[in-house]
Design a protein around this nucleic acid. Sequence first.
RNA 1: GCGACGAUCGUCCAGUCUGGUCUAGGACAUCAGCCCUCCAAGCUGGUAACGCGGGUUCAAAUCCCGCUCGUCGCACCA
Length: 560
Amino acid sequence: MPTALEDVVELARRRGFFWPAYEPYGGAAGLYVLGNLGVRLSAKIAQLWREYFVTPFNFVELDTPNLVPAPVLEASGHVSNFRDPMAECSSCHRKYRADHLLADAGSKLGEGSSLEEMEKELNSLKVKCPECKASQWTVRPFLTMFDTKLGPYADVTAFLRPETAQGTFVEFKRILEVERERMPLGVAQIGRGFRNEISPRQGIIRLRELRMMELEVFLDPEKPECQYLDRADEKTTLRILTEKARVGGVTEPEEVSLKEALESETIKLEWLGFLMLQSKKFMLALGVPPPSIMFLEKLKEERAHYSTQTFDLEVNLNELGWVEVAGLAYRTDFDLKSHTMKTGVDFSVSVQLPAPIKRKVRRWFIDIEKLKKAYPVEWRSMMKEYGSIKEREGEPPSSLAGVSVEPSLFTIKETEESVNVRKFIPHVVEPAFGVERLMLASLLYAYTTKEDRTVLRLPVEIAPQDVAVFPLISKEPMIKTAIEIAEELRKAGLAVFYDESGTIGRRYARSDEVGIPFAVTVDGQTEQDGTVTLRDRDSWTQVRVSRIQLGKEILNRKTA
RNA sequence: GCGACGAUCGUCCAGUCUGGUCUAGGACAUCAGCCCUCCAAGCUGGUAACGCGGGUUCAAAUCCCGCUCGUCGCACCA
């Protein structure tokens, strides 16, 4: 008895949603192809995602390169954090996680230690290779990002991006300018991410190249309130398994309203909570039922290096268990700060204060003429150091370039200055979805059988095709009329599936199987009165509709 | 990457132990045609597979070795 998952995977291949890539060459783990229906489904899911995360808030979209020069990902911490220490046995060349070998050997060194330290420790403790019992090791990093070179010069390293977010962060300044410094500002990116997974598994669940939908919401940390909170109805609750509960051994999530979760500080930021609620609504729209949705708070050691609070959005996929379909992370100002440190580019935002703040400032200046007289030889090198001092508030320095300086060589000026702006580095909240996992989830929850036939009850908004058109029997003039109607509906902007092979029952079965919500059949009566039957995928009930009204009627039902 | 198990038409299964009769068989799906006035009906015909590489042998789907891919556990993550 095949499971629903197996049926869906088989259906996906047979009808062209997705299948493993490069099969003629024996396949390549972690790489998948989207066929025609898969392309349509993923496009519909992306469109629906926009309706939940982008358009209602007037957020913007961005598309940055997949290739990222190394320094960008060095700054973001990915180069040092997206790697595992790999110990290789010098005699049999088998590879292990170095920190795991050390832990087994009782060493104090662990994940935080340097590669050199770990290699030394492994060799000095004479840790034996679990396979061949040799004890000579080399420790190398295993980078879970794909690296490559830009152009012909070996020193210009680049990576395929592990997430779209860094592209967004790096471009933040320009986007901010284009958007005239609106805050909060959401910047969405739908694109591919690449991860050299040690072991890609479970079909489309763990991929080496995946489609991501990420939103970065930039906020003023002093105004972290979410102005859309009133849109959050209290009926939609969140099922949360908190870090505290998990540490305490609890395995069942708690069901709370967003308001309660924020009041109890279970969720540390309004925006994070609001996006969690949007995420839940998005999952409901994809056809996942409420009991199969929960948020799992990540433990400190599970969180990515950039995050202070993270919830995984998990969906129960039966035989696959709870599968993470999104990560919602409060990244604070980690990323923008990191890029500022690396580049010196100021990623801060200025906001005008309601009233300027006046303050008295004491600044010191050196008297050059006096200095020249006092130090006829050394004054040049002293001035060089003086010129490099940016802050001239407070007390003047007692020495310059190693030469002590009399306070009398400085003049003090007192001025009143007014500060008109407040500068801050925005904080970032990020929901990040994996498209392939969403496709699988929606297919699994849409999968039903009716009278031994498969019916994919995909929500109308994400069904890859809108309407099927058939002649009742494959004979003229029904074929001709059906083809005409198919053309008319295509012109009306609908995705039409036309089929005349087999018998009518078989054709309905074929269209049910890929979730086409409506089927139009041309029969004998069509010739006489210009009406056709319009059949509903889920109820199999039919009504007669005039051919002229057809396009309108289907569009009406779609939006109903 | 490690360990365990596995790999035959699109799918499921037969054949492998005991090498030859396998030019690899069946069912379902698919394609062409016939039939067909509402839910995978029937008939005829077709397409379609021994994962890859090497070895043993007169002879390999079948025995041996390596690799690849898959499933599951460990680890990693959307």
